[in-house]
């Protein structure tokens, strides 16, 4: 019976795609894209402001709990896949300033959602005394939320610390936190 059901389903699926007319007047095919976008693209005319989305910067801070921070690695996701990553920069602390942004995979899209793994190490010439042991801003991630942001109920953001190390490369405990900054229009 199951097989019969499958068979009927299969032939039923053929009905909408059976040709029979002038192909020039068929409905235009939707182009196939990989990965499948989760929202349709639509260009905006210059000057238009899309009120359904919000640009923001996620500022990520790490607290090495009093130990000199030598390296960190963490993951950033949105549980409801509600943001798109638009750019990544470092936190600006001189101990981690290699003249380039932190390491991350620029192809951020995976299974329909953006995911970031960020990692960086301190300048190897620095001693432990020169490394931050207090909470320090380590990364700024520009994102686009596909919804207006309610200040009282900010969207959920997941931060997962993979590892952190001290000046000698030994693993240490550390806490990650973040703030969400939405740029304000100047007066």
């Amino acid at each position: 019976m199951i097989k019969l059901f499958l068979a009927i389903t299969m032939v039923g699926l053929l009905i909408p795609i059976a040709p029979g007319g002038n192909p020039e007047h068929a409905a235009p095919k939707r182009s196939i894209t990989v990965p499948k976008p989760d929202d349709p693209g639509s260009g905006l005319p210059p000057g238009a402001i899309q009120t359904q989305t919000t640009f923001a910067t996620i500022k990520i801070t790490i607290d090495p709990l009093g130990k000199p921070l030598g390296a960190y690695q963490f993951q950033l996701t949105s549980p409801d896949a509600s943001f798109k990553v638009l750019g990544v920069e470092g936190g600006g602390h001189p101990a981690f300033d290699h003249g380039r942004p932190p390491y991350f995979d620029p192809v951020v899209r995976e299974a329909g959602a953006d995911r970031l793994i960020l990692a960086e190490y301190a300048l190897p010439r620095l001693d432990a005394e020169q490394l931050p042991s207090e909470p320090v801003l380590i990364a700024r991630v520009a994102v686009l939320f596909d919804q207006p942001i309610d200040a009282d109920e900010p969207p959920a953001i997941n931060l997962l610390l993979t590892t952190a190390g001290d000046a000698d490369g030994n693993k240490i405990q550390a806490n990650l936190s973040h703030t969400l900054q939405i740029p304000e229009r100047p007066e």
Binding site: A71, Y72, Y121, G165
Partner: peptide
């Protein structure tokens, strides 16, 4: 590099220190 049994940023840091 650090023989921890896994590969993470601490290995990159270890190699950077060794190079330095």
């Amino acid at each position: 590099i650090d023989g921890s049994g896994s590969i993470d940023i601490l290995d990159a840091y270890a190699l950077a220190r060794r190079l330095e």
